[in-house]
C-alpha cells in the first residue's frame, strides 16, 4: 500500500533512499540477466509465429511507454496536492530508460570493434591483399587504446601521469588525430571545387537556374560581394527610405549581399520548410509502422 501511495505521489524507485536504491537496482539487473538467460532457450524452441508474437508485444509495450509518457496529462494536483505539476508518473523513468539505451549502444560498440579487429587480424594472418594496412590499423588501435585508457586512469588519479604518457598521448591525440580530422574536413573544399566545375553546366533550364543562383549567393555572402556592390558600383547599402518610389527601392535592394540574403530567406527557407514537413511526417508514419510492427523491412 505504501508503494502505491508513493507511486501516486510520484515517488518511484528512482527516488528511494540510497541503500534501498542500490538493492533494487541490483535485483533488477540480476533479474534481467535471469530473464534473458531463460528467454533465449524459450525463444529458440518457439515456432516462428510464436517468436514474432513476443517480438511484436515487446515492441508495442516499449513504444507505448514513450507514447504514454508524452500524451498522459501531467497536472494531477487536483487529486494529489503534493504532486509535481510538470510531470506524470512515467516521467521519472524517462532518464533511466534513455540510460539503458545508451548502455545497449555501448555494448554494440564493443561488438563493432570486435568485428573490425577480427577482419583485420584475419587479413594480416592470411596475408590477404593490402594486409600491410591491416597491420597499421591493428598497431594504431592497440597503441591508441592503451594510451587513452592510461590517460583516463591518470585523470582519475588511479595511475601516475608521467611525462612519457603525457607526451605520447599529446602526440597521438593533439598532433595526429585532431590534425587528421581537420585535414579530412578540408578535403571537402577541394571536392566542392571539382564537383562545382563538373556539375554547374547549362544543360537544362533547371541546371541553369541552379548555376546562376549558386554564383549569386557565393559572391553575395562574402565581403567581395559587398565591395563590388557598394564600393565599385556605388549602390547604397542602407535600406530604402519610407515611401520611396520603385526605382529607388530597387537601387537600395539590388546589392549582391541583399540578393543573396533574399535567396536564402525567401527561396531557400520556404523550400526547406516544405521538405522538413514532409520528412517529419514521413518519420512519424515510419515510427508508427515500426511501433505497430507493420513494417516488414528489416524485421
Amino acid at each position: 500500500m505504501g508503494m502505491i501511495t508513493n507511486l501516486m505521489a510520484q515517488q518511484t524507485i528512482w527516488q528511494l533512499p540510497e541503500g534501498s536504491r542500490v538493492l533494487f537496482a541490483t535485483l533488477i539487473v540480476a533479474g534481467a540477466f535471469v530473464l534473458i538467460l531463460g528467454l533465449i532457450p524459450v525463444l529458440q524452441t518457439l515456432p516462428p509465429r510464436g517468436r514474432r508474437a513476443i517480438i511484436v508485444t515487446v515492441t508495442f509495450l516499449a513504444g507505448l511507454f514513450f507514447a504514454a509518457e508524452f500524451f498522459l496529462p501531467v497536472n494531477w494536483t487536483a487529486f494529489f496536492p503534493q504532486d509535481d505539476p510538470t510531470r506524470n508518473f512515467l516521467t521519472p523513468a524517462i532518464q533511466p530508460a534513455q540510460n539503458v539505451l545508451q548502455i545497449i549502444g555501448a555494448l554494440a560498440l564493443g561488438l563493432g570493434t570486435f568485428g573490425l579487429v577480427r577482419l583485420h587480424l584475419r587479413n594480416a594472418v592470411q596475408k590477404r591483399p593490402q594486409w600491410g594496412y591491416s597491420i597499421v590499423l591493428l598497431v594504431s588501435f592497440v597503441v591508441m587504446a592503451t594510451l587513452s585508457i592510461l590517460n583516463t586512469l591518470a585523470e582519475k588519479e588511479i595511475v601516475e601521469r608521467g611525462p612519457v604518457l603525457e607526451r605520447a598521448f599529446s602526440i597521438l591525440f593533439d598532433y595526429t588525430l585532431v590534425q587528421l580530422d581537420a585535414a579530412m574536413f578540408s578535403l571537402i573544399a577541394f571536392y566542392i571545387f571539382s564537383a562545382a566545375y563538373r556539375a554547374f553546366r547549362i544543360r537544362s533550364v533547371e541546371a541553369s537556374i541552379l548555376m546562376f543562383t549558386a554564383m549569386l549567393v557565393m559572391i553575395g555572402v562574402v565581403p567581395l560581394g559587398a565591395f563590388i556592390s557598394y564600393t565599385l558600383l556605388g549602390l547604397p547599402e542602407a535600406g530604402a527610405p519610407e515611401g520611396a518610389n520603385f526605382l529607388t527601392q530597387l537601387e537600395h535592394n539590388i546589392g549582391l549581399p541583399k540578393i543573396a540574403n533574399w535567396v536564402l530567406t525567401q527561396l531557400n527557407a520556404p523550400a526547406q520548410r516544405a521538405i522538413e514537413f514532409g520528412v517529419g511526417i514521413g518519420g512519424l508514419a515510419m515510427a508508427i509502422r515500426l511501433w505497430l510492427s507493420l513494417e516488414r523491412g528489416v524485421t
Binding site: Y191, I192, A195, A196, R198, A199, F200, L210, Q272, I275, E276, G278, V279, I281, G282, G283, A285, M286
Partner: peptide
C-alpha cells in the same frame, strides 16, 4: 536537407526528403 546539394552535384540520382521514406 543540407547535404542534398552535394549529392545532386556529384551523384547520378538523388532522392530528397520524404521520397526517402
Amino acid at each position: 536537407f543540407t547535404q542534398v546539394p552535394f549529392f545532386v552535384a556529384a551523384c547520378d540520382y538523388t532522392i530528397i526528403g520524404d521520397e526517402f521514406y
